[in-house]
């Protein structure tokens, strides 16, 4: 006769048992297995970046010409102390890949941070104030977006010179229009939403409306966008590295490794293959993660689900 005590209102009053919760999470992980896989892949990359010294068996810069161009361990001439083999200067490829995550993630993280901050401010102002301010900001944004992206990046990189900070700044600035656009769209939508109108009718001032009602609801879409953009930046950083326009050649980055391996593509293909696979792995993982976040963080999709 327990049932009579509970109301029929909803699940609000029903105590969930541990088995219920376990079953829920089980269904959750299984349905979202793609996203969970993506998150695991991303975590592997982050983990390697943080613990590079502990994971890599060698100093990534240590040359050993005697063991140069050694193939991966599963080849006949390979050895397990160099699992992915060595490059033309005898540096351990596995260690260089592990250290390479640092460059990629630094560029991706800070690039997105700068782009996100700039874009958020521009987009929020354009969307909230509207009118002429909106036209001017969005005009600038569209101008930047209409530039041939890679050419623009190559040009700036050539002028400013090769350094990590320059790469981050370039990506941060050139990518901010995308964030501005998404932010503006969301702000326009939220500004017209029922709860903002409700806040206005309660007498809320504009800082409260922006910081308490609009910004918290922007977080979801912006995190999703940031994931995709970070993956794109990692990809482009490698491209710039390959063109010799990213970090100096001494720094172990995947782009630099690709460029260095190009010459030996026929004789020692592994030198270019492993950084390529690393880029693919990271990019795939982050895109899976982004797709999943889009579903999970979007309140509009959530509403239809339950």
């Amino acid at each position: 006769m327990v049932a009579r005590e509970t109301t029929a209102d909803s699940l609000l009053d029903v105590e969930q048992t541990w088995a219920d919760r376990l079953a829920y999470w089980g269904r959750f992980w299984w349905r979202d297995r793609g996203g969970v896989l993506g998150m695991l892949m991303f975590l592997v990359v982050v983990f390697s970046a943080i613990f590079s010294p502990a994971i890599s068996p060698y100093d990534p810069l240590q040359q050993n010409l005697r063991d140069s161009k050694m193939p991966p361990a599963w080849y006949e001439e390979g050895r397990w102390d160099h699992p992915f083999g060595t490059d033309n200067l005898g540096r351990d490829i596995f260690s260089r890949i592990v250290y390479g995550t640092r460059v990629s993630l630094t560029v991706g993280f800070f690039g997105v941070l700068i782009a996100g901050m700039l874009g958020l401010v521009m987009g929020a102002i354009a969307g909230y104030i509207g009118g002429r301010v909106d036209s001017i900001i969005m005009g600038v944004v569209n101008l930047v977006l209409s530039l041939p992206y890679l050419l623009f990046v190559v040009f700036i990189a050539a002028v400013l010179g090769r350094s990590l900070i320059n790469v981050i700044l370039i990506f941060g600035i050139t990518d901010s229009p995308i964030f501005a656009r998404v932010t503006r769209g969301e702000v326009l939508r939220l500004r017209e939403s029922g709860f903002v109108e409700s806040a206005v009718s309660a007498g809320a001032t504009w800082p409260r409306i922006i910081f308490d009602h609009i910004l918290p609801n922007l977080i979801g879409p912006l995190i999703t966008l940031a994931t995709f953009e970070m993956s794109r930046m990692i990809f482009y950083e490698a491209g710039l590295g390959f063109l010799g326009l990213s970090v100096p050649p001494t720094v172990p980055s995947w782009g630099n490794m690709l460029a260095a391996g190009r010459k030996y593509l026929t004789s020692s293909p592994w030198i270019a293959t492993f950084p390529g696979l690393a880029i693919m792995f990271t990019s795939l993982g982050m895109n899976l993660l982004g797709d999943w976040l889009r579903d999970v963080l979007d309140p509009r999709l959530r509403r239809t689900r339950k």
Partner: peptide, 27 residues
């Protein structure tokens, strides 16, 4: 004050019920 048509859109999904009901008093 106003009572709105759409009970789904007019409550901020990121605020708790306590915050929603108390917000006008805080404002």
């Amino acid at each position: 004050q106003m009572i709105f048509q759409d009970p789904y859109a007019s409550l901020n999904p990121r605020h708790s019920v306590g915050k929603i009901v108390g917000e006008p008093l805080v404002i």
